[in-house]
Nucleic acid binder design. Structure first.
Ligand SMILES: [Mn+2]
Ligand SMILES: [Mn+2]
Ligand SMILES: [Zn+2]
Ligand SMILES: [Zn+2]
Lengths: 152, 152
DNA sequence: TTCCTATGTTGGAATCATTACAAAGTAATT
DNA sequence: AATTACTTTGTAATGATTCCAACATAGGAA
């Protein structure tokens, strides 16, 4: 699952953020860093049932909330009722299927620049002191296009 | 509150979408069209307590879900636990305060073009058949900047 | 290394937004 | 006016998330 370099990297990330290193935090962060499935709390619990069979879901919620506060992780809603989490290593945004909820990463050359432009423009217009953004694009994923028989 | 022209306009919107015109639907839509507060279900219930004192919150949920399906209204989360709703008359996006949750509308000349560019690019990259998008920018609103004593 | 304590984990209960359901009401069509 | 499918309503059920108190432990101090 999470290889050694991921474990080393995530250990460093925790220490850099002055977070106390517990096995739960380390393993959850490593899981997120090595899975780009945008998991829910339940997905994480299932994925780590071998490593941490006794971990309560409270711990996962606590841990993820801590990571979100430290901006290691972002929260995503795809309309299925539960929150999805994403380790935000490289800048990207999301395309979300309105039929099955599948979330995929999207980026392109110049995305970071566009993002910065958006934030600066928003600061000018609104007077907010900007700290981040979320962009989501909705539509039907390729599988659901076939499943629903829609034609382009 | 909602003036005559708003009532006429929203009546037409309901009919154009072949939605059965009930007092609840008409008044809720008119409320949304004339308030840009991004209300929650509770805010709407309070705001309409004079006009519709016996309306149940189930009705508000049902009605709003219908409007969202017909794309008259969009849902927004600002992290306070409940969903906010927005009648989407003119294209805009949102700046959301990370401290107090305040949501403000933002737009600029050329926003619709930028939006279309983003959607087309995302379709090319992901293969999704795009139907919409949400952009949110996070930060501290001017009031909270003062309240928290942050310096620019 | 051992001790100390602030912090984290756990599991179960509590919360609260949203949905499900069945009975009663009504908009639109005939 | 009669019909009927759709809507509203109140209440119960659901389910994700948070709260809480007891227990455990990471990491600094001695
Ligand atoms: Mn992602
Ligand atoms: Mn708005
Ligand atoms: Zn899909
Ligand atoms: Zn604020």
């Amino acid at each position: 699952m999470a290889n050694n370099s991921v474990m080393e990297d995530t250990l460093k990330v925790l220490k850099d953020h002055k977070l106390r290193v517990t096995p739960q935090r380390h393993i959850i962060l490593a899981y997120l860093a090595s899975h780009h499935n945008h998991p829910t709390v339940e997905t994480i619990r299932d994925g780590l049932s071998k490593e941490l069979p006794n971990m309560g879901s409270s711990t996962i919620y606590n841990t993820l909330n801590t990571f979100v506060e430290h901006r290691l992780v972002v929260e995503l809603q795809n309309g299925d009722g539960s929150t999805h989490y994403d380790y935000f290593g490289t800048p990207h945004y999301h395309a979300i299927c309105t039929n099955c909820g599948k979330i995929v990463d999207v980026t392109y050359p110049g995305f970071s620049k566009d993002e910065k432009t958006l934030e600066e423009r928003t600061a000018d217009i609104s007077g907010y002191m900007i700290s981040g953004n979320h962009m989501e694009v909705y539509g039907l994923c390729p599988e659901c296009q076939v499943k629903l028989g829609v034609k382009k």
